Simulated assay, not measured.
Amino acid sequence: MSKVFSALAVSVDGDITGRDPGAGRGLGDGGTLFVVSHPPAPEISDRQNLVTTGIEDAIAAARETAGDKDVAFMGGGVVTEALKAGLVDEVVLHQVPVLLGEGRPFFWALPEQVRLRLVEAVPAPGVTHLHYEIQR
Rank of each mutant, 00 (worst) to 15 (best):
G86F: 07
A61V: 01
E56K: 12
A82N: 02
H131G: 01
A66N: 09
R104Q: 13
A121N: 02
A41V: 15
V51E: 13
P97L: 11
A41R: 04
L100T: 15
Q95G: 00
I134P: 09
R104P: 03
V71R: 00
R25W: 09
G14E: 01
G24E: 03
G103E: 12
T80K: 01
V79M: 03
L50V: 11
G86K: 00
P42V: 09
G126Y: 02
G77N: 07
G101M: 01
T80S: 11
D20P: 02
G22C: 01
G18R: 00
T128H: 08
S45H: 10
F73P: 00
D20R: 02
A60S: 13
R117F: 05
V88H: 13
H38Y: 11
A121H: 07
A121S: 09
L50R: 10
L130W: 07
V79F: 02
N49M: 14
A72L: 03
F5L: 14
G22D: 14
S37Q: 12
R19M: 15
P40V: 15
P97W: 07
D46N: 15
M74P: 00
E112P: 02
E81G: 03
V119C: 05
P21R: 06
Q95S: 11
V10T: 15
A61R: 12
T17W: 11
E81Y: 00
P40Q: 13
V10C: 07
V79G: 07
V122K: 00
A23N: 04
T32F: 04
R117E: 11
L93C: 05
K3N: 15
V96I: 12
L110W: 13
E90I: 00
P105T: 15
I134M: 04
P42D: 15
G103A: 09
L83S: 01
V78P: 01
D20M: 03
A23V: 13
G30L: 14
A124I: 02
T80G: 00
V78G: 09
D15W: 12
I134R: 01
F5C: 04
S11C: 10
M1N: 13
A61E: 07
S45E: 10
A82W: 05
R115E: 14
E112W: 00
D57V: 06
R104Y: 05
I55V: 04
S6C: 05
E102W: 05
A61D: 02
N49H: 09
E133V: 01
R47V: 12
T52S: 15
